[in-house]
Simulated assay, not measured.
Amino acid sequence: MMDTRALLVAAALLGVVVRASPTGGSNGSLPLVLWHGMGDSCCNPLSMGAIKKMVEEEIPGIYVLSLKIGKTVIEDTENGFFMDVNQQVSVVCEQLTQDPQFRGGYNAMGFSQGGQFLRAVAQRCPSPPMKNLISVGGQHQGVFGLPRCPGENSAICDFIRKKLTSGAYTDLVQKHLVQAQYWHDPLNEELYRTHSLFLADINQERAVNESYKKNLQALNKFVLVKFLQDTVVDPVDSEWFGFFKAGQAVETETLQESDLYREDRLGLAVMDKAGKLVFLTSDGDHLQFNRAWFTAKLLPYLR
C-alpha cells in the first residue's frame, strides 16, 4: 500500500526531477504532469518517484513531468506549505507553455492538494490544453479541519493548526500559508468568500469568470477519487466536490445538491450530464492504494 505518512521521511533527500527522454511519447501517448500533495515533494522515490516510474513502466515511452516548485527538493516541500498557490499555478503554467513536449496537449494527475492546484491550471491556462484531469484525494471544496498534517516536522503542523485556528482569512495568513488558501469555514461563509485568495476564486464564489467554465469544460474527463477511510481530509466529501451545508459543520451535501452545481458556476452540471465527470473510490486512508488499483482505475485515462 502507498502510505504518504511513512513515505515523507525521505521527501527531502533527493535533488532533481528525473524526466523521460526529450523525445518522450514515442508510443503516441500524451505527456503526463504530476503534482504532489502537502508535505511531499516531486521526487521522493517512495511516493511521487514511484508513481512516475510505475506509469513509465506501464506506458513505455510516455513523457512524465513531476512538478518541482523551487530549485531544490527541500524548497519544493517547503513551498507546498508557504508559497502563494496563485503564484505556484502561474509558475506551472509558464513551465508547461515553454516545454515543447506539451504543445499537443497533456494529461494531469494531482495528489491531495495537487488535485485542486491542477484544476486551477486547467481553468486558468488553456494553452497547452489539458485533456484529462485526475484528482486523487483533492479537496475541491476545501477543508475545515486538519486532523493529521503530513510532514516530517511536527512543529510545522502545529504552526499551521495555530494559524488556521486564529485567523485563516487575515491577509498575512492567506498570502503566506498554502492551506489557508483552501480553508473553507462553513460557519463564516461570507468571510471565506470575501478573503479566500485561491479557492473562492477558482470555485467562482465571488463572480463568474466565463473563461474558467469554458476551459474546465474543455476537458475530456475529470476524474475524482475519494478515499473511503480518509482520516486526513475533513470533510472527505470535498474530494467529490461535496461539503458541509452552510452554517454548520456536521451535515454534508453532495456536489449535485450544492449551489455550485445548481447554479452551474463551473459548468460541472453540464460536464456531469455529458459523462465527463468520473467518480471513483478507494477503500483506504488518504492516498493509500496499491498498484493493481492504480493500474485498473486510473491508467485507462492516461493511455
Rank of each mutant, 00 (worst) to 15 (best):
Y63F: 03
E57Y: 05
L277Q: 08
G39S: 00
I62T: 07
T231C: 03
G15S: 14
H36Y: 03
C157L: 01
N220T: 12
V89Q: 13
V232C: 02
V233T: 15
R206Q: 11
L133P: 02
G267T: 08
I69D: 14
E56H: 10
K163I: 15
G37F: 04
R193D: 15
F144E: 05
H140T: 02
S135Q: 08
T23A: 04
V225C: 09
Q101L: 06
V55P: 05
V17I: 14
A12V: 06
S258P: 00
V143M: 03
L177N: 12
F111L: 08
I202P: 00
M54V: 10
K276A: 01
K276H: 01
A292W: 10
M2N: 15
P126R: 10
C43E: 02
V143P: 00
T4A: 04
V9T: 13
N209I: 03
H286N: 00
E58M: 12
E152C: 13
D185C: 09
L146T: 08
P45M: 02
C42P: 03
K175T: 00
S66Y: 04
L30N: 04
S90H: 13
P235T: 06
S41A: 14
Q181R: 08
Q174F: 02
E152L: 15
E189K: 11
T194A: 14
S282D: 07
T77G: 08
A207H: 15
R262Q: 15
G25C: 06
L280G: 08
E56M: 15
E78Q: 15
G49W: 04
H176A: 08
L34M: 06
Y182H: 06
Y63L: 00
A218R: 12
L302M: 15
W35N: 14
V17K: 07
A296C: 07
P235F: 03
G284R: 10
D3K: 10
S29C: 09
S112K: 00
N27W: 10
M130V: 07
H36F: 02
Y106M: 08
Y182Q: 07
C157N: 01
H195P: 01
F227H: 07
F102H: 07
N86I: 03
R124P: 01
K131S: 05
M1F: 12
E75D: 13
K213L: 09
P128Q: 05
L133T: 03
D264G: 04
R193I: 11
L67M: 11
F222N: 03
V92W: 10
G49Q: 04
R103S: 07
C157E: 01
G61L: 04
W240M: 05
L266M: 11
K175E: 09
Y301G: 07
S258I: 02
A10T: 14
L146H: 00
C93E: 04
R103H: 08
Q95L: 13
N203L: 15
Q288L: 10
G15E: 09
E239C: 12
D3C: 13
V143D: 01
C42V: 11
K214Y: 07
Q116E: 09
G137H: 11
L216V: 14
G105C: 08
G115R: 14
E190P: 01
G25R: 05
G284W: 05
G28Y: 05
T254G: 05
F244Q: 13
E57M: 11
N107P: 02
